[in-house]
């Protein structure tokens, strides 16, 4: 646990989550196109999109200073959250006692940034989107929290690193498997993709929270959304399915990338084959799942 290892590991995490995320987005689009028997865009398409948006004109529809700041905050907080995920080793580069709560809060900050951007843009569509996004957040976060707490009770530690280490060495038990299933079922809602993309429903409320953004700001929020997909798939693959993990950090990174690719493929299948839910249906789904996942905690208390 020396400094150089921390810096290297942090750089790898940020590289995977922030800089590879447009590639994974391109992969998603390609898979979706293939499912619909289309050719689809080139795999680097999302890089082109972000680059193009970076150079476009930045339209300002309000004098509100928060409108200018908060899109960047979304990318920053994704980067912060990326530092809490174990990719190269059992332990993530940043860890402390209680980082599962920090992680839950930091992914909330992503939501806050986008919600504040939306409401600062003064567009009523954006307000509708912001309201829906917050509701989705508050219904889906308990599931992730409960799953992580189940791990914490099993492992006897509030550190993500310890949870992963425990899970890797002890193998799955009933409560952890249940938590894993719950996180998987809430994965689409965590990412914010179909069937849970109610806050950015293009056809319904014209991209909702993003309607007023243009140029670099839109690029940032787009980028944050792409990175969010990779981030949550990494959470699922690295914390809840930590196998296999080796001594070599490069090999670990490659294994993590392969796992993420598989999970993104499954998530894209779900996305391509499902319609969008209404917000009240999504809320009920998530809250029911959250209520159900409390069972995992009781099982963990019983020690199974």
């Amino acid at each position: 646990m020396n400094t150089s290892w921390i810096i290297l590991s942090a750089l790898i995490n940020i590289f995977v989550v922030l800089f590879l995320s447009p590639f994974f987005d391109g992969f998603t689009r390609k898979v979706r196109a293939l499912i619909q028997s289309r050719v689809g865009p080139p795999p680097l398409q999302s890089y082109y999109d972000i680059l193009k948006l970076m150079g476009k004109e930045d339209l300002k529809s309000t004098i509100n200073p928060l409108f200018r700041i908060s899109p960047y905050l979304s990318v920053i907080s994704i980067a912060m959250a990326a530092l809490l995920i174990p990719i190269t080793d059992f332990n993530p580069p940043f860890n402390f006692w209680g980082d599962i709560f920090l992680f839950i809060y930091i992914i909330t900050v992503v939501g806050i940034a986008i919600i504040i951007t939306a409401s600062a843009s003064e567009n009523p569509f954006a307000y509708v989107g912001a309201s829906r996004k917050m509701m989705l957040h508050l219904s889906v976060e308990p599931i992730l929290a409960i799953a992580l707490i189940t791990g914490a009770i099993n492992a006897g530690s509030f550190k993500i690193g310890d949870i992963v280490t425990w899970y890797y060495s002890n193998g799955p038990n009933v409560s952890m498997l249940l938590a894993t299933v719950c996180v998987f079922l809430s994965l689409q809602a965590l990412i914010g993709k179909i069937p849970f993309d109610v806050s950015e429903a293009e056809q319904e409320i014209a991209e909702g929270v993003l309607i007023e953004l243009s140029g670099p700001k839109y690029a940032c929020v787009k980028w944050a959304n792409m990175s969010k997909q990779v981030l949550f798939c990494l959470v699922f693959s690295q914390i809840f399915i930590p196998w296999p993990m080796t001594e070599n950090f490069l090999l670990n990174t490659i294994i993590a990338l392969l796992k993420v690719t598989i999970i993104i493929f499954i998530s894209t299948l779900i996305e391509a084959l499902n319609p969008r839910l209404r917000i009240d249906q999504a809320l009920k789904y998530n809250l029911t799942l959250a209520g159900f996942s409390i069972t995992a905690i009781f099982l963990a208390l019983l020690g199974v």
Binding site: L59, L73, I76, E212
Partner: peptide, 23 residues
């Protein structure tokens, strides 16, 4: 991070313009 991203934005030299809200 914020310094990096602001530098990135400045480097892209995106022009700015004031417009009305799009309804």
């Amino acid at each position: 991070f914020s310094l990096l991203i602001f530098a990135f934005e400045k480097y892209a030299q995106a022009p700015k313009r004031d417009v009305d809200t799009w309804y």
